[in-house]
Nucleic acid binder design. Structure first.
Lengths: 345, 345
DNA sequence: ATATTTTTGATTTACGTACATCAAAACTTC
DNA sequence: GAAGTTTTGATGTACGTAAATCAAAAATAT
């Protein structure tokens, strides 16, 4: 049997109350006594029974998720994952609320953060837009002792506790490497379609992609990046124009959302087998395009993992516990049509 | 507050004892009463507080992991993950033991399974060798009500409860797709190095790889597969011979272990930049080779995920609970040098 | 109707921790 | 050494469930 608080009390020759005071660092214990207890804990290898502890305190964590609105499939999937977590919340002793804000709107986001602040939750998860007013609002949260995790897109300098998302520079580099190798000696320029340079994840992907292309495939012409605002209709127009202007277009890297538009434009031009298309995020549409061959590679971040990691981290931070960063790393999934997971219901 | 057993008793108009009888299906409840209670459970949306339940029963699960011995880095990593799980075992109410057996030895493995059987654990996880005596031994475990999960390599027809590993056919197809695309129009044949056709995961990877190569890259010559027994020295010899016999060798798919040998042979021949090498499993050696460029792609299965999934499933099965298969799927990681995770301590 | 069996209720203890209260003891300080 | 302060002990209740016991009630059989 694993040791309990009683065993520690016996081993240390103190009372249960004192052990409790040490374990939950309550005041009123001499440092000599504290040492005795801590030694007993170490020699017995005591670990707190988390289940029993949670049962006893019966506390619950209130968390707020701030997510962008709009019809971006990935974000809707993310929201679905948050709602799934809400469904389990009684079992996890969490109370989760969602705040929805317009995409790419720093002002609205800063307001939402302030609103979250007013509600005084234990923690906040936010898909960040990289702007000073947002940074300030997040800083204020932190100064008030509220845990903050950035989700999907980071916000350095905001003192956020943790970033739950992928390494977007690595993602961009990976896309660049695959693009370069897939194209081989085939001639023609490569286009990049982003959502908006206002969000850090897009900027970082671009940086990684351009870095690898310039470094390892320096003969390949890179067209200037166009911004599609993660909007399918706009992306379709932009990509259509690109294809028209560059009949020899060899590849497209779409590092944001709005892939419906990308697919529509490429297929309308009848160039689905000629253009190497690399895009982000597995959605019903992008999955279909990968299977049909219009998209060649999908880079993906698992929204479910990100949400669950964010919740774990927020709970830990709210308790003042350390987070094992390595365990919370979100990996970049690379999907070809051959390793696509079975579709889920 | 979420409802408790007391609330159910009140709602159903029965005593706590009766609720307990229904919840833990103990005998001695009329079906009318049972229905009443079940209706109360449904209307209140009661869910058992697992933490409290575990605390109350104070049960612990004894599990046995049967792993191959030898210096295969992946298997050693797997064992390290099991030991890591053992370290947390007090908190998880599990007692894990490891049985080590010679690799690719069906007879020894069947004996080990029988030994595990004798110890009457709640569950067994086994890296399977696909042979009739192993299948039989596993069947006997299952007939005795012991939960069984196959790990890394599956054993269909053994009535195992679950397979904790990747879809190896998809892994092989992915390797094939990448090999075909990376080579493009470059001439030269492609070689395949396996560990042993005795284990199902290697057979399946081969099947997937050959399938894609024949189907999508039909002009590419595929050399007959050679078996390196996951032994670095043997692999080095075999690959060295292959390179010598086929000076125009364009690619090598190493679907088993022993990558140290692969790397050594390719580098000795000075062909690290000419041969496209795709291998499996991220280890210190393969990581170095990926970074240096000798290996172009690494397919990986996360040993930690597999072990933790196996433990979750074994515990669930031991309790007679259902497993959400989709949640336990192990994904195939694809690593290029650009998306390699930071090295861990 | 009585005897017998089955079903239900009431109550208690236990799991390991958290948290609160009050009294007793051990230190300080002057 | 008395008064004050700090530290420690003893004890109890609570969390939500499991599991057991024994008595009471209801159903069934005779």
């Amino acid at each position: 049997m694993r040791p309990t608080v009683h065993d520690i009390a016996a081993e240390a020759g103190v009372s249960l109350a004192t052990v409790d005071r040490v374990l939950n660092n309550r005041p009123g214990v001499r440092s000599v006594t504290r040492d005795k207890v801590e030694r007993a804990i170490a020699t017995l290898g005591y670990v707190r029974d988390v289940a029993a502890a949670n049962l006893a305190k019966g506390r619950s964590y209130s968390l707020i998720f701030i997510l962008p609105a709009g019809e971006n499939s990935f974000m809707r999937g993310l929201e679905a994952e948050v709602r799934a977590a809400m469904a389990h919340s009684p079992a996890e002793r969490t109370e989760i609320a969602i705040l929805s804000v317009p995409a790419f709107d720093a002002r609205a986001l800063a307001d939402a953060v302030a609103e979250a602040h007013r509600r005084r939750p234990a923690g906040v998860a936010v898909v960040a837009v990289d702007a000073p007013e947002v940074t300030q609002a997040v800083k204020r949260l932190r100064e008030d002792g509220i845990a903050v995790v950035t989700l999907v897109s980071d916000l350095p300098g905001s003192m956020r506790d943790h970033f739950a998302g992928v390494d977007n520079i690595a993602a961009g580099r990976t896309a660049g490497n695959l693009m370069g190798r897939f194209l081989g000696d085939r001639p023609g320029p490569v286009a990049v379609v982003a959502g908006s340079m206002l969000v850090r994840d897009h900027r970082e992907r671009l940086e990684g992609f351009q870095g690898v292309m310039r470094q390892c495939f320096e003969t390949r012409l890179l067209l200037p990046v166009v911004e599609g605002q993660d909007d399918a209709a706009l992306v379709e127009k932009l990509v259509g124009a690109l294809i028209e202007r560059h009949p020899d277009l060899a590849g497209i890297y779409s590092l944001g959302a709005g892939n419906r538009g990308l697919v529509a434009a490429v297929e309308k031009a009848g160039r689905e087998m000629k253009i190497c298309a690399i895009a982000h995020e597995l959605t019903p549409h992008s999955r279909a395009a990968l299977l049909s061959g219009t998209i060649d590679v999908l880079l993906n971040q698992d929204a479910g993992h990100e949400v669950r990691s964010a919740i774990r981290v927020l709970k830990a931070k709210a308790d003042g516990l350390a987070v094992i960063e390595a365990q919370e790393r979100i990996r970049i999934d690379i999907f070809l049509k051959d390793n696509l997971p079975i579709e889920q219901a």
